[in-house]
Amino acid sequence: MSRVGVAIAVGAGTAVVLFLYGRKRHFYKRHFYEIGTPGVPWGASERAAWLKHVGAAKRSYMKEVVDKLEPLKQTFDVVKYGELSQNPSRYPLFCVKTKNWDERKPCMLLTGGVHGYETSGVQGALLFLQENAQHYSKYFNIARR
């Protein structure tokens, strides 16, 4: 019997795909970001090039994240636990967790926003909370940071 699997990781300007087919492994790695050298930390010139490349902020953290938390307060506890040190009033940080936390249930942790300019993790976690988390909260304590 052949086994097929795919693992995909995207971040920091690199896409990595690992295909598993039977006992063979196929590895594909593609660097698609024009700034910097893969594996070398950015310095001041790379940061300046990135800021020039992306320009002014194109989205609003308040609209894209904070406002989407408001409806979740009906079903979950939404707790502010901190803020970013740069411009704290603009970037508050929240934890969304199951109401009536039950120590007997296993825990599920959703995270997003590890890299601030990558929005897909945050939006995926918010979408899960909006559409599926209430169902899974029957079986798990859920926390999202």
Rank of each mutant, 00 (worst) to 15 (best):
residue 3 R to L: 14
residue 5 G to N: 12
residue 7 A to V: 11
residue 8 I to D: 07
residue 14 T to W: 00
residue 14 T to A: 06
residue 14 T to L: 02
residue 15 A to G: 07
residue 19 F to A: 02
residue 19 F to Y: 10
residue 19 F to D: 06
residue 19 F to W: 08
residue 20 L to I: 10
residue 21 Y to M: 11
residue 21 Y to S: 13
residue 22 G to T: 04
residue 25 R to I: 14
residue 25 R to L: 14
residue 25 R to Y: 08
residue 26 H to M: 13
residue 26 H to Y: 13
residue 26 H to K: 10
residue 27 F to V: 11
residue 27 F to R: 11
residue 30 R to A: 10
residue 30 R to F: 02
residue 34 E to C: 08
residue 36 G to Y: 01
residue 36 G to A: 03
residue 38 P to H: 04
residue 39 G to S: 06
residue 42 W to G: 00
residue 42 W to Y: 11
residue 44 A to P: 05
residue 44 A to D: 12
residue 45 S to N: 11
residue 46 E to Q: 10
residue 48 A to F: 04
residue 49 A to W: 00
residue 52 K to F: 01
residue 52 K to A: 13
residue 54 V to N: 01
residue 54 V to W: 05
residue 56 A to Q: 13
residue 56 A to D: 12
residue 57 A to E: 14
residue 58 K to I: 07
residue 60 S to I: 10
residue 62 M to I: 14
residue 65 V to L: 09
residue 66 V to H: 06
residue 73 K to T: 15
residue 73 K to V: 10
residue 75 T to V: 09
residue 76 F to L: 07
residue 80 K to Q: 15
residue 83 E to H: 14
residue 84 L to D: 11
residue 86 Q to Y: 12
residue 87 N to L: 13
residue 88 P to G: 02
residue 90 R to G: 09
residue 91 Y to F: 14
residue 92 P to N: 07
residue 94 F to I: 04
residue 95 C to S: 11
residue 97 K to W: 02
residue 99 K to F: 12
residue 100 N to I: 09
residue 100 N to E: 14
residue 104 R to Q: 15
residue 104 R to A: 15
residue 105 K to P: 03
residue 106 P to F: 06
residue 108 M to H: 04
residue 108 M to I: 08
residue 111 T to N: 14
residue 112 G to R: 01
residue 113 G to N: 02
residue 113 G to M: 03
residue 114 V to G: 09
residue 115 H to T: 06
residue 119 T to D: 04
residue 120 S to W: 08
residue 122 V to P: 00
residue 124 G to N: 10
residue 125 A to G: 07
residue 126 L to V: 04
residue 127 L to D: 14
residue 130 Q to N: 12
residue 132 N to F: 15
residue 133 A to C: 09
residue 138 K to F: 14
residue 139 Y to K: 06
residue 141 N to M: 05
residue 141 N to W: 07
residue 141 N to S: 07
residue 142 I to P: 00
residue 143 A to E: 03
residue 144 R to G: 02
residue 144 R to Q: 12
residue 144 R to D: 04
